[in-house]
Simulated scan of single mutants.
Amino acid sequence: MWTERELMGSSPLHFVYPPGFHDVHIVFKNESASRTGSLKHRYSWALIMWALLEGHVKNGTHVFEASSGNTACSLSYMCRVLGLKFTAVVPDTIEEIKVKRIERQDGIVIKVPISNRLIMAETLARSSGGFFMNQFKNAFHAEEFHDSGSSSKPSTNLFHELINQLDGVLPGVFVHPAGTGGTISSVGRYIKKYGLKTQIVMADTQYSIYSDYVLNGSFSSQTGSHHWVTPGMAGIGYGAMGPAKIAETTSLDPAVIDRILKIPDLASTAAMRVARELGIDGGTSTGVNFLAALHLASVDQMRPITIATILADSGKYYESTYLNREWISDKFSVHGGLPVYDCWIQVIKNSYLNGDDPLELGNTKCSVVNFR
């Protein structure tokens, strides 16, 4: 596993200097450059390492996971490296390109309705004597948030790696959404433990329950599934998967989050398109991150400022969905479809060039009621 970690190296940085914002640098840590094409490569390494150390995974263990695609692809890679059998339980709405990526790593794919993923993966693992990795629960334990002390091995924390790449320059803000909650929590716990001054901002998707969970704890005994409106943003947000409880059904640590932003799903989809045109070719979370970063640049008066975020996976995985106008027209019809989508594209482009707040303008100009 340490040989594999050395092969990973450090994912590259992509710098963006929005012309409308003086002395604002947005830096994307490009995790799509990993060996399995997403942020989940380092994440899966941490999960497997934790499972090995805790004795959950041994020679011959059949590993199961519930995933929207990226974690499954990376876990199947790690299991192949170790000679282990792997089965991914994925939503039946998964993009076919993600299925093929999992199968290329010798993973087995089982499709189920999105709300049944965790139950099915756990049931299959128990009935076969395998191990359910359960990233939603166990990322809280697996993702490191400490330095490596006197060890010759460097810390595997993403933020530790980032500030080394920035030659010690500390970002003013780190922004990212929550899927399992593991990445933003591990970054936040690292920052809080070492007293760093970077603000942690969670960009929550429109119908996710995470913002209420962080702010109020109001979904600790409710599923929130009735709040979920399809299609959502693939792989991020939280909806129909049971009560949100830290280290049980989610790895999101509310204590390390400084601010919450709610980002409309169709706005995030539009931001994917604008970002791609600017050379930031990322997926759903990258759209959320880009839009959130522009908003933060518009409201934060500190200058100069570096806003750090993640390019979590490649836009090529979403060619048939979130980057496809016909799909957007169909799946996002309840949100206003292409007229609202095109409105958001123009707002985001203007914000990038002129320094306007894209969320303030977009929520007014691109409201569904304006296009009825």
Rank of each mutant, 00 (worst) to 15 (best):
T123Q: 14
I191Q: 00
G168H: 03
T183P: 01
T180A: 09
N134D: 11
L162H: 07
I119K: 14
H141Y: 15
I191V: 03
F174N: 00
V169G: 02
F131S: 04
S150W: 07
S148N: 13
S151T: 07
V187E: 00
E161W: 04
A125D: 06
S185V: 08
G149T: 05
G149R: 07
H160A: 12
H176Q: 10
M120R: 15
A125N: 07
F131D: 04
S127Q: 14
K153Y: 14
S152P: 06
E144M: 10
S151F: 02
E143S: 14
K137S: 02
V173A: 13
Q135Y: 01
F159Q: 10
N134T: 01
S150T: 15
D167Q: 14
F145P: 06
P154T: 12
A142T: 06
H176E: 11
L118Q: 13
N138I: 05
M133Q: 11
L118V: 14
L158M: 11
V175A: 11
T183W: 01
R126W: 05
V187R: 01
G188E: 00
L124R: 07
L166T: 00
I163H: 03
G181W: 09
F174Y: 11
G168M: 02
K137A: 03
V169L: 14
N164E: 13
F132A: 12
F131G: 05
F132E: 11
S128L: 10
I163C: 07
H176P: 02
G172C: 07
I163Q: 06
S155F: 03
S127P: 10
P171A: 02
T123N: 12
N164D: 11
E144I: 15
G172P: 09
P171M: 04
G179P: 14
L166H: 04
L124D: 04
N134V: 07
